[in-house]
């Protein structure tokens, strides 16, 4: 668990971070979102003391970070950087083993852990002896993550972890990351300027502007109960997609029409979001499929573009005004 209390960072007379407070609960992923220069990276770097705050207090798992040597603190926090920051003169295996070596693990344990991580991140074991320059951008970024995870730190800081990748690779790795068991248990604070990424990876999103927090909350809260005009305008471009993604079939269950029995049905789980389902339907239509349903507790609902959009409109109205 990470807690920030009235933390500020000033360079000369300009405040890069201005008295912010928030916390990341254990096992939660919070995303710091904002334009460049809003103070999000500075905030992240103050947590592992790469930048020292000018005021305020930061506590990790009950301990004030000022009360321990910076090196020791950092060894207990996984750190993933935008430009991976792999050591070009170390092999992949050596790169992954940096923190375990600093912690003086024995050789066997390090080797076992390295192989485990390579496998988990879907990198061939033969990569262990290659150098970073011999890998693709996406592979390098996965090694960067493996290195951060190597010593099993409970807390992970990620600074634009996918920022240097092209959109296609980026989407692919993002999906892999969300499915990674090891990441699910971690307390994660991540920085990004990509709205899509923030909504996909964050349990909560902390939107920053000019060194201050504008709003912190879940995706739905930001979308449907924006604290200020800045929040709505920040999300404007992708609002429609983000909203559809944040609403699940089960959320609008009562608003959907009942389905008749029939054959050749395609069934969607009620835990899927509207965007995914609409995408799936539109691709199935071209193959000739006609009937789409969702089933929950012996109840069968009819799914199609019209019913989903109707449900979405009603749902949105109910939460914005209720």
């Amino acid at each position: 668990m990470i807690q920030l209390e009235h933390v500020s960072k000033a360079y000369n007379n300009t405040k890069a971070v201005d008295g912010i407070s928030f916390s990341v609960k254990e096992g939660e992923t919070v995303v710091l979102l904002g334009t460049s220069g809003c103070g999000k990276t500075t905030t992240l770097r103050m947590i592992n003391r790469l930048t020292e705050p000018t005021a305020g207090k930061i506590v990790i798992n009950g301990q004030n970070i000022e009360e321990q040597p910076a090196e020791q603190l950092r060894r207990g926090i996984g750190y993933v950087l935008q430009h991976h920051g792999l050591f070009p003169h170390y092999t992949i295996a050596e790169n992954i083993a940096i923190v375990p070596n600093l912690l003086k693990w024995n050789k066997d344990k390090i080797e076992k852990r390295t192989h485990e991580l390579l496998e988990e991140l879907q990198l061939p074991v033969s990569f262990a002896h290659l150098y970073p320059a011999q890998l693709s951008g996406g592979q390098q970024q996965r090694v960067g993550l493996a290195r951060a995870l190597a010593a099993n730190p409970p807390v992970l800081l990620m600074d634009e972890p996918l920022g240097a990748l092209d959109p296609v690779t980026r989407a692919g790795i993002r999906r892999e990351f969300t499915q990674l068991d090891e990441l699910k248990k971690k307390t994660i604070l991540m920085v990004t300027h990509d709205v899509q990424e923030a909504f996909e990876l964050g349990d909560r999103i902390c939107l920053m502007d000019k060194g201050k927090i504008v709003q912190i909350g879940t995706a739905t809260e930001l979308l449907f109960k924006p604290a200020t005009g800045f929040v709505s305008s920040f999300l404007k471009e992708q609002r429609f997609q983000l909203e559809l993604e944040s609403i699940l079939i089960e959320d609008i269950w009562t608003l959907l029409p009942k389905a008749n029995d029939g054959i050749d049905e395609i069934v969607f789980s009620s835990g899927r979001n509207l965007w995914e389902v609409l995408e799936a339907i539109s691709s199935h239509v071209t193959t000739g499929a006609q009937r789409f349903v969702s089933i929950e507790k012996d109840e069968k609902k009819q799914i199609d573009a019209t019913s989903l959009m109707a449900g979405y409109t009603q749902y949105k109205n109910s939460i914005t005004h209720g």
Partner: peptide, 18 residues
């Protein structure tokens, strides 16, 4: 030396001598 690399080194808990 690439700043990202030295940043990573510090961020992982290497001392300045290391």
């Amino acid at each position: 030396v690439n700043a990202a690399v030295t940043d990573a080194a510090k961020g992982m808990g290497m001392s300045s001598v290391q």
